[in-house]
């Protein structure tokens, strides 16, 4: 009897504390993201990107978006409107014209993170990232200046490049893409001589990193520099390089048409209705 009582008492003591429950109304700090008083810029971004595209443009510094060991600086907010306007004209609108207004809404990543400086990795620097079709990071925003066409082109090309990653992360390019330059891909692309990549059939040194980067580099180079630039480039790299670049070009044209129903180039000379021509016109109007 005594033992039973003792056991009952012990059980009761243990159970006594199990009644506590989490308060479902208690507010977790930082849940739902950081908040701050909205500015004119926040309103502008909301109307230009959130409402039409459901895109979040994160321009305020958040260290957890980046490599925690590296040095960056936040975005100078005076650059944001100019950059995002240019990005909309040069990247979003040409795709909308070619593939319809729902294309960007459906395919484009929903989160855009901006940061003021580049990411330096020893001998190389990162201009942008694309992650899992969900997020694109654009670096070096503080260098953006409409008066400097080289910088403008470089930063917009980065955005285009990262978006191409989203495209192939959604529907992969044909496997034959990987075979055209199979022997020339290398992880140590940065230490290869500048004279090599053209004749090997690449548009840049970075394109040699792997077939994905090659795909993003080739398309973003053509889109940002134009078809004529690509033709001139092919004549400058020798017959072997040109043949490989031509083969890549054909895959790109077919990929855009069959997968996304996009005319990469204009439908006839002077029509100006291809993605490349529309983009070129937008760049000229910046």
């Amino acid at each position: 009897m005594k033992r039973i009582l003792l056991c009952m008492a012990m059980t009761a003591m243990l159970l006594a504390c199990t009644k506590d429950e989490l308060n479902p109304d208690s507010k977790l700090l930082g849940m739902g993201g950081d908040t701050w008083e909205r500015t004119e810029l926040d309103d502008w971004l909301y109307h230009e990107f959130v409402v039409p595209y459901n895109m979040e443009i994160k321009y305020k510094w958040d260290p957890y978006e980046f490599d925690l060991e590296k040095n960056y600086v936040p975005v100078d907010e005076t650059r944001v409107k100019e950059l995002m306007t240019s990005l909309k004209k040069v990247w979003i609108e040409p795709y909308e014209k070619q593939a319809g207004t729902s294309f960007i809404k459906k395919i484009a990543p929903k989160r855009y993170v901006l940061v003021g400086s580049l990411q330096y990795n020893g001998t190389t620097a990162t201009l942008g990232f694309a992650e899992g079709g969900n997020k694109i990071t654009i670096l070096d925003v503080n260098s953006f200046d409409l008066k400097d066409p080289t910088i403008v082109r470089r930063i917009l090309k980065t955005a285009e490049h990262e978006f191409v990653h989203t495209l192939h992360q959604t529907v992969l390019y044909p496997t034959e893409w990987q075979t055209i330059c199979r022997e020339s891909y290398t992880g140590s692309y940065n230490s290869t001589p500048d004279s090599e990549f053209g004749p090997a059939g690449f548009v840049s040194k970075y394109a040699r990193a792997n077939p994905d980067e090659d795909f993003a580099e080739t398309i973003s180079h053509i889109v940002m520099n134009g078809r004529q630039w690509f033709e001139n480039y092919m004549t400058s790299v020798g017959a072997d390089g040109a043949a490989k670049l031509r083969a890549k070009e054909n895959i790109i044209i077919a990929y855009f048409k069959t997968i996304w129903n996009i005319d990469f180039y204009e439908t006839y000379d002077g029509a100006g209705d291809g993605l490349v021509e529309i983009t070129q016109e937008a760049i000229a109007r910046l």
Binding site: N71, V73, L118, Y120
Partner: peptide, 23 residues
């Protein structure tokens, strides 16, 4: 300090800003 201002200048990894080692 979540938007660029003078306080970020010493931390700016761009070598043209401070003249320090790149990165």
């Amino acid at each position: 300090f979540d938007g660029y201002n003078y306080i970020h200048w010493p931390a700016d990894p761009r070598p043209v800003i401070t003249g320090a080692t790149t990165g």
